[in-house]
Design a binder for these strands. Structure first.
Length: 165
DNA sequence: GCCAACGTTGGC
DNA sequence: GCCAACGTTGGC
């Protein structure tokens, strides 16, 4: 019945951008590992975005602090709302003494490798194509490592990365 | 390596 | 609750 298709169409997909320094962990590392827990985020606004992610959401993998910086590819959220294990590990640089198993402060997601873009999209290109209010990564001074991307912008990024724009 | 931007901490 | 000091991010 038609109602079935209308309900299917109500499923929401959200899009994100997540930064990593490729010297620390790159898209190519994720291609090798197939999936990884995105640990180490210690900013509350970024954590809140991580907590709102749902399985099946897509995230752009952004290479930061490298030359040139930019979007290298795509990944998919494969597990949602995990407690970041590094907060409990005294040997980790991300250890948080104020976190307990009963009251963890930091949540994250598991991401799964999706694709490496045929065309790496440099920050320069992103600045040419998008406005700071539409894509926060082109805002000057923006340091958030996890940001939402509006669907219409995400569609354009996908087209550019796949060489269809 | 420099440094602007900006988040966090802690004294008051 | 203010805000100076401090630490970190990340482009260049």
């Amino acid at each position: 019945m038609a109602l079935h298709f209308e309900q299917t169409a109500l499923i929401r997909m959200n899009y994100w951008l997540m930064k990593s320094e490729p010297d620390v962990y790159s898209l190519q590392d994720l291609a090798r590992d197939r999936h990884t827990v995105w640990d180490g985020v210690r900013n509350y606004q970024a954590r809140n975005f991580l907590k709102s992610m749902q399985i099946g959401d897509l995230a752009f993998f952004y290479h930061s602090n490298t030359s040139p910086p930019g979007i290298a590819g795509l990944m998919q959220i494969s597990q949602a709302n995990l407690d970041d294990p590094s907060q409990f590990d005294p040997g980790s640089k991300y250890y948080d003494a104020k976190s307990t198993q009963e009251k963890p402060r930091w949540q994250t997601v598991q991401v799964e490798y999706e694709e490496e873009f045929a065309h790496f999209i440099s920050l320069d290109r992103l600045r040419q194509e998008f406005q700071p209010d539409d894509l926060w990564v082109v805002r000057q001074g923006n340091r958030l490592s996890v940001i939402p991307v509006p669907e219409a912008i995400a569609m354009q990024i996908l087209a550019i990365g796949r060489g269809k724009a």
